[in-house]
């Protein structure tokens, strides 16, 4: 859609939400490109932001605009401050009424999580929508930059984005020559699930010098049988999961004495909150995962 049209929509949104009194409509609009490649332009720094996924919440806080967040969804548990922000339901079924009544001036939507129809309704009401769907490390950094620009906190956002980029670069330098480790990352236990090479977790594995044994799988999140894993005979198994304590996921692999990962005791746990969300915390998760693969190398 053309820019003038979009700004027209944003203006009408502001009118609708009772912000017509603000009279600096002549200021230059702020424009960024979201993860769907769409131009998102707003006339003023967003002061009332709705973050419709836990990941988006983390990103907007990371961009230094946590104080501007007026709405989040269930499971938005990081940072701690986000827990006290008004919830507008689960990401799959939003309470639009409550969301609208909070009069947001920027929506951070999750394209693969929020219902298409509900996001369309928000757009129809003239609210600017920015899609957050990072797939690469750079996407995370860029999102932080973009959100900072939209919320008028560019300074802090740039610092945070830089910290993240540098951290990833350091890991990249450290492990690009390291011997490769055949790695199985377990997303879930029952059913047994992993991810293919295009998923960002797989990119973390790759970053740390690991080879995701299911990188070639056609589906993003394949469901597997244990047999498929045994056949691949990974050297290391890393488990994530929903909670922070699921050691028993790993215990199940101990039954298979012939499995390389079991023989070498390379059964590791990485806190899922640090790796299963594409947010700045991924750096921390990557550091832990890299350490685990180092341990595996040491046991050769």
């Amino acid at each position: 859609m053309a820019n003038p049209m979009r700004s027209l929509l944003s203006i009408s949104a502001l009118l609708l939400s009772g912000w017509a009194f603000v009279s600096n409509a002549l200021a230059d609009p702020i424009c960024v490109v979201d993860d769907r490649g769409r131009d998102v332009c707003i006339d003023h720094a967003a002061m009332r932001i709705a973050a419709l996924s836990p990941g988006a919440t983390e990103l907007i806080y990371a961009a230094g605009a946590g104080d501007n967040v007026v709405a989040v969804v269930s499971y938005s548990d990081y940072p701690e401050a986000a827990k006290s922000v008004t919830s507008v339901g689960s990401h799959t079924r939003l309470d639009l009424e409550r969301l609208i009544s909070l009069q947001p001036d920027l929506i951070l939507a999750w394209g693969t999580g929020n219902p298409t129809e509900q996001i369309e309704t928000l757009e129809r009401l003239g609210l600017p929508v920015y899609y957050v769907e990072p797939h690469e490390f750079e996407d995370i950094a860029r999102n932080i930059d973009n959100l900072g620009a939209l919320a008028g906190t560019s300074q802090r956002a740039k610092e945070e984005a830089k910290r993240f980029r540098t951290g990833i670069d350091v890991l990249h330098e450290r492990y690009k020559q390291a011997p490769r480790v055949k790695t199985f990352y377990q997303v879930w236990d029952e059913p047994l699930m992993t991810m293919n090479g295009s998923h960002y977790i797989s990119k973390v594995v790759d970053l740390c010098g690991g080879d995701n044994v299911f990188a070639d799988s056609p589906r993003l999140i394949p469901r597997l049988s244990q047999e498929a894993v045994l056949l691949k005979n990974p050297e290391a198994i890393i488990a994530g999961g929903m909670g922070e304590r699921n050691a028993n996921w790993l215990e199940k692999w101990r039954v298979f004495a012939d499995l390389l990962a079991t023989q070498k005791d390379n059964l590791f746990f990485v806190p899922p909150s640090l790796i299963q969300r594409p947010t700045p915390r991924l750096l921390e998760g990557a550091q832990i995962l890299c350490e685990k693969l180092d341990i595996a190398r040491a046991r050769r």
């Binding site: 609708l16 939400s17 009772g18 009424e97 609208i100 009544s101 309704t121």
Partner: peptide, 11 residues
Amino acid sequence: SGLNQTLVLEL
């Protein structure tokens, strides 16, 4: 108010 109208008429 515009907000009430949106809530009632649009949602």
